[in-house]
Design a protein around this nucleic acid. Structure first.
Lengths: 154, 154
DNA sequence: GGAATATAGCATCTGACGGGTACCATTTCA
DNA sequence: TGAAATGGTACCCGTCAGATGCTATATTCC
């Protein structure tokens, strides 16, 4: 429960890869092979990230994707929202579009405190950037190259 | 996504109700009627909360449930864990029993930073008590974030 | 003692959705 | 012109959240 889905996981892997390679355009195939992610699924995810404005796409042969926003400006929150829809700790949370009134809104005894929690949680996600995840010190301590080929044993 | 389930929602409502009435033993029926929660489902949830040691149960006529722990000692984390199992932001998170090695552990490029996030998230849940939720005024906001915080070992 | 009330512990059902696949159109490069 | 890549859409399938039902057991009240 309260867990990230595979989609989020793959999205983060792809986004972090793009962040690490910098400006270069990378194809879905390349990312899928390097990180052993199912290619068709990754393609769907990258499409979503593109629609959400997280990545730019280049069509045609030699096409691919690149970050649309600097890694330190792209929040975890934005990436997750792109592939999962709005993050809602509780269904009755007011998330703008798509939020429908909770059927228990009138009598709900935990509505107010849960909404506060919800907003704290959103802030939590908003304060983490792709840069934080992609350029984690622990990652660089490993024998992994920027181009990704790596076999790290634990 | 990343949302609490109905089970968690009902569990929190029940727990908060128990917290508010103090020592008194309250039946599942009473809580269900007051808060318009499906009774059979609530009964299941209260059973789980009992097994997890969050609430005490009294069997027989005039029986019911009461908090097993002071409201300000019972964490949100404990309640959620009772009804949902271990909170795991990612499936590969080390949660003691039940954790199985991630099949991509060796090559996963986001493992370390995500694990840090996971632990911060757990701390986030650990710092909120039932008292905070049940007695809203007592609730206060804390800054959360990834940067500038003490590193959490895995 | 017996009926009523309430929890304990199962076992089961069903719809929704996460995870994954397939197909075709479109664009670009060689 | 064909290969390589994205764009868009529709679909399948297994799992699980959400909910229900039944029986056993414990306690209270008459």
């Amino acid at each position: 429960m309260l867990s990230l889905t595979k989609k989020s996981e793959y999205a983060l892997i792809a986004i972090c890869h793009l962040a690490r390679v910098g400006e270069r355009v990378v194809s879905a195939r390349e990312i899928a092979e390097l990180h052993q992610v199912p290619l068709p699924l990754l393609m769907n995810i990258l499409k979503q990230l593109n629609q959400a404005g997280c990545v730019n796409s280049v069509r045609g042969a030699r096409g691919g994707y690149s970050l649309a926003v600097p890694a330190d400006s792209l929040t975890l929150s934005a990436v997750l929202r792109a592939v999962e829809g709005p993050v809602r700790l509780v269904n009755c949370a007011p998330v703008g579009t798509g939020s429908r009134a909770c059927e228990r809104a009138g009598i709900c005894s935990i509505r107010s405190p849960i909404h506060k929690l919800h907003h704290q949680f959103l802030r939590f996600l908003d304060e983490v950037t792709v840069s934080d995840v992609a350029f984690d010190e622990a990652y660089y301590e490993r024998p992994v190259g920027m181009n990704g080929e790596a076999a790290v044993s634990e």
